[in-house]
Amino acid sequence: MKLLSSSIYRYCLLVISVIMQSCVSANISKEFENATLRFSRGTPMPSSRAYMGYCNTSKTTFVVGGMNKAEEHYNTILSYSPKNDTWNEVTPINIKGEKLINTTISSGSMFLFNGTKGKEDDPMASIDVNVREVAFNNRVPELTNVSLNPQAIHKSSIAEWKGKVFLFGGRIDDETYSNTLFSFDSKKKEWKQLASMPKQMITYGTIVHGKLYVFGGRNEAPIDEIYMYNIKVDRWVKVGKLAEPIVDATITNYGSNIIIFSNEQLFIYNTDKGTLKRYHTNVGKLVGNGMTVSEEKLIIFGGVKTNSVGKEVYSSTVYTLDIQKILQ
């Protein structure tokens, strides 16, 4: 009886702590800056591409697949060294030529989820059900199918934490958005379904200190809420609202800060203080781009840019910024 009471007591304390965090975090201070963050330009990618997978280590950024203006799909994995400002291909790896691949690094390997050759806005297009592991640190890199995705889905999002990969949201078909959250153990290659998101939606998220934060997105309408999932207690709470919906974004994190790029603006959410800052940039309007942090630099690359006359142009441009400039 004492053991049972002790377990219930600890669980109640965890739930109370989540509720208290929700109440505190809901008071978000939105600081809108007039200043423009000016990115420098690095060596361009070997080819213009958008809607690619991407991930990073502390020293290297990887670009996986994607497509070009002619809707040709790339089957290569590229690596970028910010220190040397150079691009290389991870050989002899050739993936299926796909775009919209969810990519992350976990337990020392790269993992690829989803991916499609279908039209960008066609959620009914065939989604790759294979989970692929890329041993990119091997003397001869290897690509292996290691599992099947229990819910391969269009425009799902991805985040990694301590050997677990979390996939959430996305679009199932023309009329149905997903609110599912799954975790994948990158060592055991095992899946687990977790607490469903508060809404069915495409959204953008990353994990800081054991908590998954998701920002905006869309379903039948644009979304302006910020939700947080506590991995320890398997529970979602709403922690705030954006000043305006974010419907297309790339996201990464550095320390306690979450960095979001959307519509040529950069948003910095500090998870410790619950503050949200917004900056203008000189990057321009991009969609389908990638964003990572490697070698203490924030790196934005690729995507589809709208030029001064409203024409869409596939980009190979690489923009870099000292990460400390946005944390002051």
Score class of each variant (00 low, 15 high):
I251C: 10
D272N: 13
R278D: 13
I268N: 01
D248G: 13
A249Y: 10
T275W: 03
E244Y: 14
F261P: 01
I259R: 00
R278S: 15
Y269M: 05
P245E: 14
V247R: 09
L276Y: 05
N257C: 06
L266Q: 02
S262H: 02
R278I: 14
V247A: 13
I258A: 00
L266R: 02
E264G: 03
A249S: 15
F261N: 03
F267N: 07
K277Y: 04
L276A: 07
T252P: 01
T281W: 03
Q265T: 13
N263E: 15
N253E: 12
G274S: 08
N263F: 11
Y254W: 11
I246T: 12
N270V: 05
L266C: 09
Y254I: 01
N257D: 07
G274Y: 01
F261L: 11
G274A: 10
N253M: 13
T275I: 06
N257V: 03
E264L: 09
Y254T: 03
I246R: 13
F267I: 08
P245G: 13
Y279H: 11
G255C: 01
F261I: 08
H280R: 15
E244A: 15
I246S: 08
F267P: 01
V247M: 13
P245Y: 12
E264A: 14
H280E: 15
I246F: 13
Y254Q: 06
I259E: 00
G255T: 03
P245N: 13
D248E: 15
Y254P: 00
T281S: 05
P245H: 14
S256A: 11
Y254N: 06
T250R: 11
N270S: 08
D272P: 03
Q265H: 12
T250L: 10
T252N: 03
N253R: 13
E264I: 06
A249L: 12
F261M: 06
N270E: 10
N257Q: 11
I246Y: 08
I246M: 15
A249C: 15
S262L: 05
P245S: 14
F261R: 05
L276H: 08
H280V: 08
Y279P: 11
V247Q: 12
V247D: 14
H280Y: 13
T250F: 02
T250W: 04
K277E: 09
T275N: 09
Y269W: 01
N263T: 11
I251D: 04
P245K: 14
I246H: 10
I251G: 02
D248L: 13
T275C: 05
Q265D: 10
T271G: 04
Y269R: 03
I268K: 01
G255F: 00
S256N: 12
D248H: 12
I260K: 00
S262Q: 05
I259L: 08
I268R: 04
S262P: 05
F261Q: 04
I246P: 10
A249K: 08
G255K: 02
G274E: 09
E244C: 12
K273I: 11
D272Y: 04
S256F: 02
Y279M: 14
D248Q: 15
E244M: 15
T275H: 05
Y269S: 02
E264D: 13
A249H: 06
K273A: 11
G274F: 06
N257A: 06
Y254G: 00
L276E: 04
F261A: 06
T281I: 09
I246A: 11
N270Y: 06
S262W: 04
Y254F: 12
Q265E: 15
K273Y: 08
L276K: 06
